[in-house]
């Protein structure tokens, strides 16, 4: 099992919701951001390309940050996630330099003022100190929301399928540009997307074997506009509808009045 993410560059809108969701999920200090959005805007004279590359820790299979860590604070879990034991980390920052993707942040005091720097902490921040204590003087990065994955799997939920076992950023993304699943399972949604849409990793030349893949394509050109049955019936929401059988003209009329 190796958890992975596929990011759809055609769909991403640079909306920043993933960033906000991650900040909430992990009570991130004011000046720390685990996922980032990198803009790529080019004009080669005949073709303009406006793209956004959402990046986060790639949970590399061959992770230089783990190799560089002198205390084994950075380690690789069995499910492929690169995690950090903050009690072991002593802040040498070798990993920050070792990560070729610049996905690690050293949490200095400067990065950790109150949300409203000259005011008291908000209740959310105070609660965060209890529920998700960040340790100033250690290094942080995206952890693929392994808290959610672990808690979900204990309840037999499937990461990437069941919300409560899926990363927060994936859940919130409005265009569904983020897909999560098991890269080792050839039938998982991520494996299929990578296969069918020629998924690629960023800077494969670094040789770290990232678990975050990207797909890109042109929008439009879909062969059929027929709505599948689930969409027609609105099956996932139909139970919320309050108007029944308006095909009976009377009721429809009543609503028009």
């Amino acid at each position: 099992m190796r958890w992975g993410m596929v990011i759809d560059l055609a769909k991403c809108t640079r909306c920043h919701a993933c960033v906000a969701a991650c900040r909430i999920e992990h009570f991130l200090p004011l000046r720390v951001t685990w996922p980032r959005l990198i803009a790529l805007e080019t004009d080669n004279g005949y073709d303009v390309d406006v793209s956004t590359y959402p990046v986060r820790c790639n949970q590399c299979k061959d992770a230089p940050c783990v190799d560089a860590c002198p205390t084994q604070a950075s380690y690789k879990r069995e499910d492929g996630i690169v995690a950090i034991d903050h009690d072991k980390c002593f802040g040498c920052r070798y990993c920050v330099i070792a990560c070729p993707y610049q996905n690690r942040t050293y949490l200095s005091r400067k990065r950790n003022p109150n949300y409203f720097p000259e005011h008291a902490q908000t209740r959310f921040e105070k609660m965060g100190k209890k529920l998700y204590p960040h340790q100033v003087g250690t290094t942080e990065k995206c952890n693929f929301c392994h808290e959610r994955i672990d808690a979900g799997r204990e309840k037999d939920l499937k990461p990437g399928i069941d919300r409560d076992a899926t990363p927060a950023c994936v859940n919130t993304c409005q265009p569904r540009a983020l897909t999560f699943g098991d890269l080792d399972d050839p039938n998982s949604n991520v494996s299929k997307l990578i296969r069918e849409k020629s998924g690629f990793v960023l800077h494969s030349e670094y040789g770290t074997e990232p678990s975050v893949y990207y797909i890109d394509y042109k929008l439009g050109g879909n062969p059929s506009n027929k709505a599948p049955v689930e969409a027609q019936t609105g099956s996932h929401i139909q139970h919320l509808s309050t108007v029944y059988a308006p095909s009976k003209p009377k009721l429809a009329k009543k609503n028009a009045d």
């Binding site: 909306c15 920043h16 906000a20 909430i24 999920e25 609660m127 859940n171 996932h236 919320l240």
Partner: peptide, 28 residues
Amino acid sequence: DGVVVHIEGNPDSLTGGTMCSKGLSSIQ
């Protein structure tokens, strides 16, 4: 304990549990 500690989309809604950065940042 009476403090909002998490906001996310309601999966059982017409927006399938998604939210944008504005709505999420209501926490601030």
